[in-house]
């Protein structure tokens, strides 16, 4: 059955291989559109079953919840793309949040604290990158080590207490709104568009696709493999830092356990969005939609008062369905190894 359909549809592609129609078909046949469709259907269902779903306040709160995960998933996509993985994003988020808020408590100016916070996130990413790209040590192990170290340091610095009493000005970053929409949402959208554009069109980023597919051939093709891999981890660290600033200012405190488990969510979203564990593939918009899908389902559980126990089951099933649909789509297009 599937086979017949596959034949027909690829026949269509062949027949209209010239002109805009095929372009359109190509775009419609991407994973992003598929995800968008699923999100669309889920939203319709939710708005039927709960009148609260399509309210402005609910949608804003979904957007705010997504914000941190999106930033982490962006970094994760870049790293997965170059055949790596970053398990430390969650704890870098935690530590950076602690550093920033403690600096603020110590009376450092807001601008300075934010800059130092971002720098420390970037620096931790840089350390990951150095171990991986320069010393050539397995990224799984390196970032796992970093994950433990950063989380441990967060606890040590705070002895497990909250860091609160943050200056008003700082809270505006995460809590302020422009035209009714929270500030971080703008930043998130800006980053999604920027990174998506860069990844498709900008040489240095584009090279990551080659690295992920065959790093040795990439090296022989004159691509600066280690610098690009390093850059991926640095960016991932920076984005974790940014997420930390949004989170701490939104919640008006720093806490050592912020971002716990965020790495798995980010990996999930990146993969639902089209990244592959084998490297060489990934899409920023896809990762964004992946986070969105997970967030909407989350929201559904809250709105419909469903037992939270089932959420794990549903999330797991979503992951399976998303990758299965994609596996079928790819097989149909002859894109997987036979």
């Amino acid at each position: 059955m599937i086979n017949d359909k596959a034949k027909n549809s690829s026949q269509l592609i062949m027949n209209s291989s010239s002109g805009h129609l095929s372009r359109l078909k190509e775009i419609l046949d991407t994973r992003e559109i598929g995800l968008l469709l699923i999100i669309f259907v889920a939203s319709i269902l939710l708005s039927i079953f709960s009148e609260n779903f399509l309210t402005f306040s609910n949608l804003t709160s979904v957007a705010i919840g997504m914000n941190y995960d999106v930033l982490l998933a962006l970094g994760m996509t870049l790293v997965l793309l170059s055949k790596g993985i970053d398990l430390s994003v969650g704890s870098i988020l935690g530590l950076t949040g602690i550093i920033t808020t403690m600096l603020l408590q110590a009376g450092v100016s807001i601008l300075f604290a934010v800059i130092l916070g971002l720098l420390s996130g970037t620096f931790l990413g840089f350390i990951n990158g150095i171990f991986i790209a320069k010393f050539r040590i397995n990224p799984f192990i390196v970032t796992l080590g970093m994950m433990a170290i950063a989380r441990g340091l967060s606890v040590i610095l705070t002895s497990g207490y909250f860091v609160s009493n943050l200056p008003e000005g700082y809270l505006i970053i995460g809590q302020g709104k422009f035209l009714g929409i929270p500030n971080p949402t703008y930043v998130m959208i800006l980053f999604v568009i920027l990174f998506d554009y860069l990844l498709r069109k900008w040489g240095p980023f584009y090279k990551a696709f080659y690295i992920g597919t065959n790093p040795d051939a990439a090296e022989l093709s004159g691509i600066n493999v280690s610098s690009i891999i390093l850059a991926g981890y640095v960016i991932s660290g920076f984005l974790s830092g940014l997420a930390a600033i949004f989170m701490t200012s939104r919640l008006a405190m720093g806490y050592a356990q912020f971002g716990l488990g965020a790495e798995l969510k980010a990996i999930c979203a990146a993969i639902i969005g089209g990244a592959s564990m084998g490297g060489g593939e990934g899409s920023i918009v896809g990762a964004f939609l992946g986070v969105m899908l997970l967030a909407i389902i989350n929201n559904g559980f809250v709105l419909l008062n469903l037992s939270i126990y089932w959420q794990g089951v549903i999330n797991g099933l979503i992951l399976v369905i998303a990758v299965t649909v994609d596996a079928i789509r790819r097989a149909r297009k002859g894109k997987s190894r036979v």
Partner: peptide
């Protein structure tokens, strides 16, 4: 092992060693 990017397209492979010339 050392030359081609098997999972990438013909077009991407043709420019692999000269991306800098196409930016």
């Amino acid at each position: 092992n050392w030359g081609l990017f098997l999972e990438k397209t013909l077009r991407q492979n043709i420019i692999a060693a000269s991306i800098n010339k196409f930016v």
